[in-house]
Simulated assay, not measured.
Amino acid sequence: MKIYFRVLSYIKPYRKQLTASIVFTILYSVFNGLSVYLSIPLLDTLFAQSGLSQPIKKVQPTVETHVFAWIYNIKDNISNYFQDLLFTGTKSEILFKICFLVFLAFFLKNIFGYLQSYFLAYVEQGMIRDIRNKAYIHLHKLPMSYFKNEKTGNLISRITNDINMLQNSVSAVFLNMIREPLSILVFLLIALSISWKLTLFSLLVLPVSIGVISWIGLLIRKQTHVLQEGMAEITTTLHETITGVKIVKAFGMEEYENKKFIKQTNVFYKLIIKIQKLRNASPHITEVLSVVVGSTMIYFGGQLVLVDKTLKAAEFFGFLFSIFQMMPPIKELSSVNNRIQESAAS
């Protein structure tokens, strides 16, 4: 971690841009959640479940004493505010106001998402430029003995490819470690405000599917690393053959070099086939797991809507949107540590 914090020290000249990126990340997460939450009054209006032809009854503050009572109180207050704001006028006027708010939420979400990405890219590229310049200046201070023991390709790779890998460390911390947890928190609060029972049930089912998906991703990542090593061996053989072509021809070693190269390409071919099996199976397994999770939640939630009648259909759809919006950030967080380790190694 000392190496990692040493890398992050290069961000100090870009504190203002980084602060702006973090602020816009927070705003992005808030409006991302709001864009989903607004689907509830929209669906409610389309399904005519709000009794728009009659005066809307305000929700009385909840006085339950369970652990989620404070969430329900906040929900009730927000519901009363939105009822006063939205559900006044004709059905067409109400529908127009809801559609306008949905558009505004999505518009602001994307604006803040763009600004967050722009300022973060400013920090990333500025840091990479500074490190590359410092590495190049340091290269001129090294003694001649150092260059005799190092290959030219390795030195070039360190200043080009390895420094580019450091970009992942910045995005992993200031994008994934801030945006994704905030997104998860926002959608979790929305889900809890709709139905805490359904949320707890979902939290028991979702980790299983996410764990399987992450395990498949880990296998693919390991195979990709082996694949890169195989390509490196092929590249090395090509480099040795081309640079030493006079020696190969002088000693009549063409047949030996051909067999060596064919053996390496065959190994690489088998690795490619193996990793393609995982990659091709991954989306299908993910889809099946998603359907299993979705069907289970639909059944359990349908019981609350149709049998218990403790949940409206629009609220249930909003709940499903919130839960499934949590899956991508959770998957992203599972890969953050690997990206940090790769950057530290570089």
Results as ranks from 00 to 15, higher is better:
residue 5 F to G: 00
residue 9 S to K: 12
residue 12 K to Q: 07
residue 14 Y to T: 01
residue 15 R to G: 05
residue 15 R to M: 10
residue 19 T to N: 07
residue 20 A to S: 01
residue 23 V to K: 00
residue 27 L to I: 07
residue 27 L to F: 13
residue 28 Y to N: 09
residue 29 S to I: 01
residue 35 S to G: 13
residue 42 L to R: 05
residue 42 L to P: 09
residue 43 L to I: 14
residue 47 F to I: 04
residue 55 P to S: 03
residue 58 K to P: 00
residue 65 T to Q: 14
residue 68 F to S: 13
residue 76 D to V: 09
residue 79 S to N: 15
residue 83 Q to F: 06
residue 85 L to G: 05
residue 86 L to Q: 06
residue 89 G to T: 09
residue 89 G to A: 11
residue 90 T to C: 00
residue 91 K to I: 14
residue 93 E to K: 07
residue 94 I to V: 12
residue 97 K to V: 08
residue 100 F to N: 09
residue 100 F to P: 05
residue 103 F to W: 12
residue 105 A to L: 11
residue 106 F to V: 04
residue 106 F to A: 10
residue 111 I to Y: 13
residue 113 G to C: 05
residue 118 Y to T: 02
residue 122 Y to N: 08
residue 126 G to L: 04
residue 127 M to R: 03
residue 128 I to A: 12
residue 132 R to D: 06
residue 134 K to V: 01
residue 139 L to W: 03
residue 143 P to E: 12
residue 145 S to H: 04
residue 148 K to M: 09
residue 150 E to S: 10
residue 153 G to Q: 10
residue 155 L to A: 10
residue 158 R to W: 04
residue 162 D to Q: 09
residue 164 N to C: 03
residue 164 N to D: 15
residue 170 V to G: 04
residue 174 F to Y: 13
residue 179 R to W: 02
residue 186 V to S: 01
residue 187 F to Y: 15
residue 192 L to P: 00
residue 192 L to A: 10
residue 196 W to E: 06
residue 199 T to Y: 01
residue 204 L to F: 15
residue 206 L to S: 07
residue 211 G to V: 04
residue 212 V to W: 08
residue 213 I to V: 15
residue 220 I to N: 11
residue 220 I to K: 11
residue 221 R to M: 11
residue 226 V to S: 07
residue 227 L to P: 00
residue 230 G to M: 06
residue 235 T to K: 12
residue 239 H to M: 10
residue 240 E to N: 14
residue 240 E to C: 10
residue 241 T to M: 13
residue 243 T to F: 03
residue 245 V to R: 13
residue 246 K to H: 08
residue 247 I to H: 11
residue 250 A to L: 14
residue 253 M to K: 11
residue 255 E to K: 12
residue 257 E to V: 15
residue 265 T to C: 13
residue 271 L to I: 08
residue 272 I to G: 00
residue 275 I to T: 13
residue 281 A to N: 14
residue 285 I to L: 13
residue 288 V to H: 02
residue 288 V to R: 07
residue 290 S to G: 13
residue 294 G to W: 10
residue 296 T to L: 15
residue 301 G to Y: 02
residue 301 G to L: 05
residue 303 Q to R: 14
residue 304 L to K: 14
residue 306 L to F: 11
residue 307 V to M: 08
residue 308 D to T: 08
residue 309 K to T: 04
residue 313 A to P: 01
residue 319 F to E: 00
residue 319 F to N: 00
residue 320 L to D: 00
residue 323 I to N: 04
residue 327 M to F: 12
residue 329 P to C: 06
residue 332 E to D: 06
residue 338 N to M: 12
residue 340 I to E: 01
residue 342 E to A: 09
residue 342 E to R: 12
residue 346 S to E: 02
residue 346 S to L: 00
